[in-house]
Design a protein around this nucleic acid. Sequence first.
DNA 1: CGGTATCTTGTAAACGTTTTCAAAACAAGA
DNA 2: TCTTGTTTTGAAAACGTTTACAAGATACCG
Lengths: 342, 342
Amino acid sequence: MVTIKDVARLANVSIATVSRVVNNYTHVRPAVREAVTKAIAELGYRPNGLASSFRTQQSNIVGVLLRQQRTPFSSALAYAIENTMFDQGYRVLLCSTNGDADREEAYLNTMLEMRVQGVIIRPSAATPRTIKQVNLLREQGIAVSFVDMKPKIAAVSSVVCDNFSGGYQGMRHLIELGHRRIGVAAGSVAQKGGAADVGSERARGIRQAAADLATDVEIIWSPPFDIASFEIGREIGDVMIRANPDMTAIFATTDMLAIGVMHSAHALGLDLPGDLSILGYDGVLESSVTFPTLSTIAQPIHEMGQLAATTLIDHMRGVSKSPRQVVLENTLIQRASTIPLP
Amino acid sequence: MVTIKDVARLANVSIATVSRVVNNYTHVRPAVREAVTKAIAELGYRPNGLASSFRTQQSNIVGVLLRQQRTPFSSALAYAIENTMFDQGYRVLLCSTNGDADREEAYLNTMLEMRVQGVIIRPSAATPRTIKQVNLLREQGIAVSFVDMKPKIAAVSSVVCDNFSGGYQGMRHLIELGHRRIGVAAGSVAQKGGAADVGSERARGIRQAAADLATDVEIIWSPPFDIASFEIGREIGDVMIRANPDMTAIFATTDMLAIGVMHSAHALGLDLPGDLSILGYDGVLESSVTFPTLSTIAQPIHEMGQLAATTLIDHMRGVSKSPRQVVLENTLIQRASTIPLP
DNA sequence: CGGTATCTTGTAAACGTTTTCAAAACAAGA
DNA sequence: TCTTGTTTTGAAAACGTTTACAAGATACCG
């Protein structure tokens, strides 16, 4: 493998000069610069990134820690982050934890050891273990930024959507359409309404809208569940629809859930949206793909990723030291699955 | 930052011994090992990965170069690769080129400089430029493995699906159901039938099945297009259905295309699957999510990723030098969107 | 031409590991 | 106790860069 020494020898200069040319510093005579460039081309020299990373202790790598990778939300997020990072010269180490705490720990360890310059985390949950790991990262001077979850640790940046407002908007939409008996498919955590996490914020918005906007709204909560998948949506929908024949709308807190609910409604012979309006949440790809097309509360996923990336970059470059907590707005996308009550 | 020297000092041994403990080599007295371990814990020492990578010239990173990241296919693939790599101690650098040749080049450059140990590529196309880059990688001793495309370069490993057989199976399925006027939605490249790429292989299988299995099959080719997206599917479907009222089935060479076609059929007032059977290709998430649920030729995406990863690992470890070209079978998943002709 | 300021270049140290080599310590057999 | 062989340890070199520092070259002024 050809090193900087070989180039120096061929160009008849010192290795320091070659280094200066490679990193195009100032203070190199044009003639010399050209000679070095020529030698580089001739030898096919390529700087050893392992060596320069080592010397500068800068890896130019950022870790992106996601709990899942297969969901459209996660991959859209990863894509947005990677794109933004690429343009700024950073490369992305993909770390999907799969919800496995051991694996999360292993990845955080790797990141610590390979001296990543920053980490973007969308955590499984803000467990004490995660918090500890994150603090460890920050002690080592590694910039950290959360996405889609506002951590309890004060001094760390985050980008989240206003899930309260999203829930509120969705509920308002259904209420304005005249619906009064409204099913809500929300996970088990959400319903308890304790922690300030994504699901329970949405649920809180939903409750609030119902309280604010009409006196006669009845919310029918789904049975609790853990994973917001298509299959769960189908089960939930089946149970709720059977038990509540007078329910006229269902607000599902995830698009995949909503699609599942749609399937169950179809299976039970309901006409959509005539017999039942359905509203989703997320705005992922599948939304536009159902019959009828799915109304949904869309999250600006790309913007989330982009902002998380630029925030992290600012921290890494020392441009901005103080944490920045960004809250983005969700927007209602009205399609064909929600209609006014006759 | 605490280094190996600090540990050595505290434990009263040389740095060589600490290194031996850290990498748990043999020939260290239990008592010494324990003392060192204690010192490591006490100081919170964490080996500097940048330094050891530099010293050994082993990054333990593999690059995964994908043309797109947002599609379910790509993200499922990336997920499978990352999972398998993780278990073997390798970390994954995510590189989505977005179909941009400059970006592909920039990423390949990065990988070369940071001395990744291997690269898995699902290229935009086997352009001469890509080929050149790949050869450059291999000259530097970096293992390369293709996925979802069999490269023309002889001596490189690949994992692909038998797209010919997939096309054949799909067509056979429709013919066996009694369909004779069958629309085929395939991209522009596919229809030319020249190169041995994914799309044209499928088209070849489709032609062959029609020729083999019935004398009276008429294939109605879609207008050419470049991107197999939902929107394109809707356009294509609209055109084809209007122009061919007697067509009884459409075979779309992508699930997203198929979903688009379904939408256009709905919009034109057709009853699915009564008036038109629709068959997809890929077996990605969305397949089970449509109304009616989509029959499709499923690719073993997870297995593809897994095999690509293990193949690459074998090459990196020198277990197997000779390239391995794996061909996997697609399987028909029959759901509700394809029915027999009455 | 001497002096000063600026630009250009080279020398050499440093980064934190791994690894080679040889020395030290120990064990066992005589 | 002295060999001989084995196990354990440390000293020091090496990996390929970057960079601080100093020295050499050049330009400009009076």
